[in-house]
Nucleic acid binder design. Structure first.
Lengths: 222, 222
DNA sequence: TAGCTATTCGAACGTTCGTTCGAATCCTTC
DNA sequence: GAAGGATTCGAACGAACGTTCGAATAGCTA
């Protein structure tokens, strides 16, 4: 049995393994999203992939590892994409728009993985849970630091900042419970809407930053 | 075996039965909230109540019925409390504040039940699921109609209204994932904060309604 | 105290679960 | 076409699950 994907022989076979792993995890995400992690069995996963029950254990050590990989992958995808895109951006308002847009864009294109992440990640145990929480915290810190910068530490306190961040995360992470693509439009529209509500609310509609936010909200740069 | 609580003999014994049922469901909510509905077993519930495994089937027909009762009870509690309180209130801004406050107040005082409702209700099947969804829709319609009244149908469209309602619900329903009473304060503070963000954002900071909302937000009536 | 009903229990049933293991098959390389 | 690792499979394991059922107990009424 192969113990570590990176140890395999190089070339074509390596690629095939990674592709199949991705395929298996994608189907797993669909099954977990539809049925819930604990209710879904690996026998159902077998039905969804066309493989045998035992065959899946070639791609993950346990059901929990499969869950971890799904959660970790989509969470890192959001965080990495945001950090890559934000490298060239200094304006905190633009960085906030980028964070919201990236979050929503990946949420809509990976709805099932996001549902699994939001809904089932806390079922993880031990090291798996610790790693996911650590990445989530890194993500939260990114948002909090942007908000702190936007507000310029002139008003409010740390508790308000925490509430603001959680309020925004709540709006975004709740999407998987109601979003329907044919009704609700695409990521850009949702970004304009949710960022609009949040930013006007967060800045209180007064001051120079708020007026600049008003211009950005009326003429979004992307 | 008793088939319907309301058929029992009257008086003390009746009261005892209802009290014990409430006790059992409260413990069940704690276990379901902590472990998740599918992972939690009735044997664990037995450990939490001090009763035997079989004894629980005197209070509910199935594990699914227990879940339904928990969800239905807390959902109705929010809706009924809000409708009762809102009877005497005409101003839609005040009604919105009442809705948010009631939702948050009951969320904080029944955090475990709310977590079960938000997290596990979609695991229900058949008639149970239909009933919960129906009540949720009634609740959504209440909010949507208030928002429509506030906006006065002057701007935006039905889709925007839907997004606004879901954005607000998202902020409120996400609370169970992060709320810590010693850090985040009580329902009134959360209401002022979340309603403030949402209302300024929803009204766009312009027009007479927005100015009136500004006054209400600065001098909350409760 | 006797009798009746409400309440609780121990024990078991059939099912499904995650996981393991040795064998079978596939695919590449020589 | 033989060799050898990569990949897949059938079959089975023990454990845990939701639910049932008849018996036992508790508590009230007569």
């Amino acid at each position: 049995m192969r113990t570590d994907p990176s140890n395999g022989q190089a070339g074509e076979s390596r690629q095939t393994y990674d592709q199949k792993l991705e395929f298996v995890l994608q189907r797993a995400a669909e099954v977990f999203a539809e049925r819930g992690f604990h209710r879904a069995s690996i026998r159902e996963l077998a039905r969804a992939t066309g493989m045998s029950l035992a065959g899946h254990y070639y791609y993950f050590r346990s059901k929990n590892e499969a869950l971890f990989r799904i959660c970790d992958h989509v969470l890192r995808q959001i965080l990495d994409t945001f950090e890559e895109r934000a490298k060239a951006i200094d304006d905190p308002l633009e960085r906030l728009r980028l964070l919201v847009f990236t979050h929503l864009e990946i949420s809509l294109s990976h709805m099932r993985e996001m549902k699994v992440l939001s809904h089932e990640a806390e079922s993880l145990r031990g090291e798996y849970l610790a790693k996911i929480r650590q990445t989530k915290k890194r993500y939260y810190d990114s948002l909090a630091s942007i908000l702190r910068e936007i507000r310029g530490d002139r008003r409010g306190n740390g508790r308000d900042l925490r509430l603001a961040a959680m309020t925004l995360f709540g709006s975004m992470n709740w999407i998987y419970t109601w979003y329907r693509p044919e009704v609700d439009g695409e990521a850009k529209r949702l970004t304009d809407f949710m960022l609009g509500i949040f930013l006007r609310g967060f800045l209180g509609g007064e001051g120079a930053t708020a007026r600049r936010a008003g211009r950005i909200l009326r003429h979004p740069s992307r």
